[in-house]
Amino acid sequence: MSSYNPFNSTIFNKVIMAGTGVILVLFVIGHMVGNLQVFLGADVFNTYAHFLKSTGELLWIMRLVLLLCVVLHVYTSLKLKFLNMKARPEGYSVTSYVKSTLYSRTMIYSGIVIFLFVVYHLLHFTAFVTNPEYADYSENYGPVLQSSGMIDHSGNIIQVTEGEGIFDRHDAYKMVITGFNKPIVAIVYILAVLFLALHLSHAIQSMFQTLGWSGPKTTPRLMLVSKLIGWGLFVGFASIPVSVLIFGLGKGVIG
């Protein structure tokens, strides 16, 4: 038994898939809720974007955790896929499935599509590599009161600076509206979230099963929840490019 490491087992690899999946799903839900603020107008949306960027180290910790999850999730999935392919070297000439679905059997492909999309999405809206002009979109906001102070060791306020003024921040709203006004970009985003919906429709229930929560009553409910979250995310995310492209959301900001 000494040579066996349970952390190399198929089960532990499945647990890595599920554990990283939980974090990524929670992020994606939060990301969608944040994005939906675009419907509340430029000011709300830019305030939210500015807040995210101003979190400093916290933002980078978040980014590193997500990066680690993505790397582990992709690496482990490929490892398991090759293992599973080796477990059946000679396939059936006739297949007939009962409980599995097309999307449960194509997780690896929907996963690859989502991964490629995430790379593009980061180059597009985060690093501005595909559209360097986005970096120059800025807007003035204010007047707002900004104050800062220092206290000494006995708790007395010793220095207060207060000022009211007009400040400058990145115009994320204009960036999103401009981006989705290109039909091809909007279509890529809509298709990507469609694949995300298919992936998560199987994945969320699967995470619970792998992590040990299952039962004759529980599993059908979790399957329903899985589909609701998957398609809910599709509607939420896709509503933004659809609104921009078809219903002219934010038309005023682009000249």
């Binding site: 038994m1 066996y4 349970p6 087992s9 198929t10 089960i11 690899n13 499945k14 398991l80 293992l83 599973n84 080796k86 477990a87 059946r88 499935y97 409980k99 599995s100 449960s104 059997r105 997780m107 199987h202 229930q205 699967s206 099963q209 792998t210």
Partner: peptide, 15 residues
């Protein structure tokens, strides 16, 4: 589980 893995069975993907 160790024996199951060493026999070369695949890993469950909850189909």
């Amino acid at each position: 589980v160790k024996q199951m893995d060493s026999e070369g069975f695949g890993a469950c993907t909850n189909h």
